[in-house]
Nucleic acid binder design. Structure first.
Lengths: 110, 110
DNA sequence: CTACTATATTACCATACAGTATTTAATGAG
DNA sequence: CTCATTAAATACTGTATGGTAATATAGTAG
């Protein structure tokens, strides 16, 4: 299972990525790009967040390699660099499910 | 791939979990429990973090269902509730790898 | 050139939170 | 009982960061 050994440096790197996903606004933005590339304005509309806010989040996501950018005229098109992000979300969902079922089991047992 | 649809509420929950993993100290703690349950003192020794700090992180991890606790006399034994955590880390490592190789490719191309 | 649009950046504020020192609670030893 | 040990809780501080307003930058159109 653990084909990557977690050195302290690697843990810092991993933690930085997890932290990037640990923000609902950024998950929203990534989710809004699920169906393909999107401009900043489109992402602003899709998420309801402010323009500066979206731009800042996109800068961070781009800096960490989660998204790629492509400039065309006035617009900047962002797209997912790696759809594994959704695999991560899916795995985390499974985590939450087992957690809640475990809680239910505990509640039922008393 | 996405068998879970990411509703806003679910995204909040997922983000909360990711944020929990987005902290090197907590990854260290989880990693220290890889080989089995451990007391707080053992985790303090293994990580080099302060006792109060470890205790607080453990409280958070326990609250989110990442770890279970078992009290025995003076000691409290913590253990992983779900080894999927390491799968998440592994997946994230793959993320980082593709990211760095992509960066290398860009650098080599110019 | 000016005017307009899209995006990025800067500055600022408020909140969240990691870390630590200290205290409290619980258990066990003598 | 007292004293020591373990862990959790509390209080506090400093820092990081999300959100937003204002500004800057870049591209386009006229």
């Amino acid at each position: 299972m653990g084909k990557h050994k977690l050195t302290p440096e690697l843990m810092d790197i991993i933690a930085e990525r997890f932290k990037a996903l640990g923000e609902p606004a950024r998950l929203q933005i990534l989710d809004a790009m699920r169906d393909g590339e999107a401009t900043v304005t489109e992402l602003v509309d899709a998420t309801g967040l402010g323009q500066a806010n979206v731009s800042k989040h996109l800068g961070l996501l781009h800096g960490l390699g989660f998204v790629t950018r492509r400039k065309e005229g006035l617009y900047v098109y962002y797209s997912l660099a790696d759809r594994n992000v959704f695999r991560l979300c899916d795995l985390m969902c499974t985590r939450v499910e087992t957690e809640t079922t475990a809680r239910k089991r505990v509640l039922a047992a008393r």
